[in-house]
Design a protein around this nucleic acid. Structure first.
Lengths: 214, 214
DNA sequence: GCAATTCAATCAATCGTTTGATTAAATCAC
DNA sequence: GTGATTTAATCAAACGATTGATTGAATTGC
């Protein structure tokens, strides 16, 4: 039986929280260990004690991202859809969940900037997060797409189409500073997230209808 | 008459080139002035002499991005499309151009990581680049969309739809490390870019058909 | 009492910037 | 035209500040 990794607690957890926030906001190199310690309400030496050093804390932050996202993902882990329509409905639900999670300010505010930086860095953290998170998530999406359209689940076309669907969602988070300016959003809330979600679901339906093998 | 801003030359240009490359690759804070100077084949003091300091070089890099992208954009600046079909064709062309420019390795290799970091940073550089580049580009896209569908050009729906189209393209660049892993691309070349372009054009057509007011 | 943590203090290394000297080209006075 | 002077540009060297890491003592929880 697969045990869910335990959540850190105490000073270690405080340091990870501070690290996720500051690394995501200012970048790894631009964040000093003293700043992290101050934000966590502890001493600099705690970083070396708990994680072996600044790089160790970075790794721990990556693991914490995997853990948290895994918890959210595991909650909506549904059994394989029986019919094409059920699969399509499940795709829509996943899309809405993603949009709400990504666009609405909340828990993800620390996770996403951190991960975004790790992706552009393309370092060792990304390797771990990719195989633990991105790939399984993408595979599940592809399987649903296959069930909904009748297309091959691991054809290049299917994989790219799924990326194009995910890309639509992610851009509204990654490019949030730009989108907010253009839309005159001071800060995207629930209403704005729903507006985006409705549009992206409509896009999903249009693309899905085209790809569907009748 | 609007004069195109002149391209820097000499040591200043070398420093900007090195700055774009290193800032984009490792981040602003993680790049030392000595490293930049060495990469540009000059002395550290040149940075302060030409740009007033490290921050000045960062600004100059932002201006250079605007200049280069502006040059590419100005070249394909077409007159307003006459018919809906012509507008749709022009949208497809712009999409293909964007995909090829973004996905294929080349000149944009330094520009995009740099801009991506500036966007996540949401600093003063982004303000300048947004009004000089992102907004005009987005407006033109919206106008074309309006001409192709009959929708209102500056409705929230239109603006969001255009973002969703741009998002599809950008994700294939931003998430390139992830996409490449999943697609087993060692490095995306012309063939891969065309494959992506064809898919995204097909998506464009599907969405456009739905939004078209008959 | 003892092991686990946290602390203030300190370390060498590196950071961005400044300095004064040096060079070659441009400008000036005549 | 020509020698004197100024300017633009680059350089090695050094500046104070800050970095991540380490140390040994103090503190905590049991």
């Amino acid at each position: 039986m697969e045990q869910p990794p335990k959540a850190p607690e105490g000073t270690a957890a405080d340091l990870i929280r501070a690290g996720l926030h500051l690394f995501g906001q200012k970048g790894f190199a631009a964040t000093s260990t003293r700043e992290i310690a101050a934000s966590a309400g502890t001493n600099v030496a705690s970083i070396a004690y708990h994680f072996g050093g600044k790089d160790g804390l970075r790794q721990a932050c990556g693991a914490e991202v995997v853990r948290q996202i895994g918890a959210v993902l595991g909650a909506i882990d549904a059994p394989a859809a029986k019919s094409a329509d059920a699969a399509a409905a499940q795709l829509e639900l996943m899309l809405r969940t993603m949009v709400r999670f990504l666009v609405t300010p909340g828990d993800a505010d620390s996770l996403i900037p951190f991960m975004l930086r790790e992706v552009t860095e393309d370092g060792p953290i990304l390797d771990a997060v990719y195989s633990a998170m991105f790939e399984p998530m993408h595979r599940r999406f592809c399987a649903l797409w296959s069930a909904a359209t009748g297309q091959e689940a691991d054809s290049a076309r299917t994989r790219l189409t799924v990326f194009s669907l995910i890309g639509q969602v992610l851009y509204f988070r990654i490019g949030r500073p730009i989108v907010s300016r253009r839309m005159n959003w001071s800060s995207p809330g629930r209403a704005e997230a729903d507006e985006v979600a409705e549009l992206l679901v409509a896009n999903l339906r249009s693309i899905l209808e085209r790809e569907r093998l009748t």
